[in-house]
Nucleic acid binder design. Structure first.
Lengths: 201, 201
DNA sequence: ATTTGTTTTAAACAAACGTTTAAAACAAAT
DNA sequence: ATTTGTTTTAAACGTTTGTTTAAAACAAAT
């Protein structure tokens, strides 16, 4: 038999790049086929439709990425250390795939129904343990009283937003991709200090 | 003569809503025409192309919005008061047009060339005065030493990002649009305190 | 009443889209 | 050597896309 796995992988690889770069609607099946150097029909042969191919790739891209973040958030780590590790892991993850933020935001705003069925939901929605931890630390007098929902959103905003405006940041500061990464890596400490000083009693 | 201005406005109004909701590529000229209850050809009669109509609307939406923010940033206000006013005005602006963030982010990532020619550039790029102010306040010993670029990005992230994930926030917390606005208005103080406590000496 | 210039209309354009079809090419099993 | 099942191919499918055309409708000026 012919090499099924090979072409299937080629389709996913090419489609992933294109979907990340141009989004769903700007990417045509002919784009995908020509980049993967395969016949157009093979896209419908292996995946039943462009839509299904897209959802497959969403799962591949997002599913694995955020499950590791949820682990940290649900761990028994000390609050400060948990925040530190969460920031570091999240930023490392986004540095290795800087288009992920824009990709998710695009899906969120063009087809919100798609995201709620996906694994992102579980990992972004379930912040109960972290919220309880914040409440408990406040009861002990270790930190100020905060709305956990707002605090978590602050953390997420400071981590993710810069990747959504990467183009602007780079143009404004004449950054190369390496300079952008340096700038982002510096943010690990900055975000940590900002968040910690905002809850210090 | 017939009512030229009326139809032109109808086109802009309808196209604005659709572009904001669905973006450029998901909005067809037939969508625009049927919503404005006009003939398809009139879109090409008043604006030469869908592209030009889109750029016209970008200028209308963004141009006016951000120029008022730049005024605050370039003013001679005391640092704390400037930060306070900037946050408040920005959030008020986004509450009155909650789709603006997603709209700009979509343009940024699908056609970055478009945004650099626009008025957003001037208002987002020129943060020199604000940066100098931060440096000066540090020299006086009033605030900690900070990278102005990072601090400004923090401010922007905390303000804008929640609007980019409005859908997720609402679903997670069972928020109505009013509840979301309440949640966001509470952020005015939260963001201010977070930023100020991060630069306190 | 006729001319003039502008606005609106219906119809069609070529191009691109996602998808389907039916036959060819291929490798393994009988 | 032939059959079987899978993979690949070329061509066409019917829609939808943005845009153009040419004629009609219209209001104001002569």
């Amino acid at each position: 038999m012919a090499d099924k796995s090979n072409t299937q992988e080629k389709i996913i690889e090419s489609a992933t790049v294109l979907f990340l770069e141009k989004g769903f609607h700007r990417t045509s099946v002919r784009d995908i086929a020509s980049r993967a150097k395969i016949n157009i029909s093979l896209m419908n042969y292996y995946f039943r439709s462009k839509e299904i191919l897209f959802e497959t790739i969403i799962d591949l891209l997002i599913g694995g990425a955020v499950s590791s973040l949820k682990e940290i958030l649900d761990s028994d780590l000390d609050l400060n250390e948990k925040i530190r590790q969460y920031i570091n892991k999240y930023i490392d993850l986004l540095i290795s795939n800087p288009l992920l933020v824009s990709f998710v935001l695009a899906i969120l705003n063009h087809s919100p129904d798609k995201i709620s069925k996906l694994k992102v939901t579980d990992s972004l929605y379930n912040t109960e343990k972290f919220a309880n931890q914040l409440d408990e630390e406040n009861s002990k007098g270790n930190i100020r009283k905060v709305d956990p929902e707002q605090f978590y959103l602050n953390m997420l905003s400071l981590i993710a937003f810069p990747f959504a405006v990467k183009h602007v940041i780079n143009e404004k500061n004449n950054f190369s991709n390496e300079a952008f990464n340096d700038f982002i890596i510096k943010r690990k400490d900055i975000i940590y200090n900002t968040l910690i000083s905002s809850i210090k009693p």
